[in-house]
């Protein structure tokens, strides 16, 4: 399978678009999703910042967001996208639905990791007079670090896959290229090239994530 110079150029451009969308959304997802996941844990009944009312509201919003299929979600948040980015079209605009969808996933994954910490460890910190902030930042997050790396890996891979739908609103990227050329114009070689590229990238992300998990696992 040989690609023409033009096809290679297209692949390059699409790869850069995907890289742009995924890297920015990953950063935003971690920055917002982890704190949201922390809230989902510490506001639980019996936890350090118990607040059952807020816990239920946040839980409901997260679940509602997660239950909307991504293509519909892109359309659904267009007004918000316009408000934030000024347009609902293009790679930057796609970052808004991508981030929102991935951040709720990240929040739930974070929640799961944090719930795995034995409650006794948190109580021990309380018994030593640690504040809630210290418990979150010096006990819960460090203890959950390997799981959090795993969660980020899952989020990145999900984002790569979601970003394939960016083409719907002119966001470009590898998925868009595969659909436009590989499907609509029957250029199967382009299709193959993007698929192979995606498989390799996802594999690399997974390997890198696994290495981080191993490096920080002390159990």
């Amino acid at each position: 399978m040989l690609l023409t110079a033009q096809q290679i150029l297209m692949l390059k451009k699409a790869s850069l678009e995907t890289f742009y969308m995924v890297s920015v959304t990953t950063a935003l997802t971690v920055l917002a999703g982890v704190p949201l996941g922390v809230l989902l844990v510490v506001m639980r009944p019996g936890h350090i910042l118990e607040n059952s009312w807020a816990y239920r509201v946040v839980g409901l919003v997260v679940n509602a967001t997660r239950s909307v299929p991504f293509p519909i979600f892109i359309v659904f948040v267009i007004p918000l996208t316009r408000f934030l980015v000024g347009t609902s079209i293009g790679s930057t605009a796609v970052i808004v639905p991508l981030t929102l969808a991935a951040l709720v996933l990240m929040a739930r994954l974070t929640e799961t990791c944090l719930l795995e910490i034995p409650h006794g460890v948190i109580e021990a910190a309380q018994s030593m007079g640690a504040s809630s902030w210290r418990i979150i930042t010096r006990v819960m997050l460090p203890e959950a670090l390997p799981g959090l790396f795993m969660a980020v890996t899952i989020a990145v891979i999900t984002l790569i896959s979601y970003s394939a739908m960016a083409g719907m609103v002119g966001g470009g990227g590898l998925g868009d290229l595969a659909i436009r050329y590989g499907y609509h114009r029957y250029q199967t070689d382009i299709m193959w090239a993007t698929v192979i590229l995606l498989v390799v990238v996802v594999q690399l992300v997974q390997l890198f994530g696994d290495a981080l998990v191993r490096k920080f696992t002390r159990r």
Binding site: V121, A125, S127, A130, R138, P142, R219
Partner: peptide
């Protein structure tokens, strides 16, 4: 008040992400 009362547990409840020294440092940091 809690700092004036040490507590030890059946399941030890140490921080698995910290060394022995790191665990002992925790209450001092706090």
């Amino acid at each position: 008040a809690r700092r004036s009362m040490g507590m030890i547990f059946q399941s030890f409840n140490l921080l698995s992400s910290r060394t022995a020294a790191g665990n002992v440092a925790f209450p001092l940091e706090a």
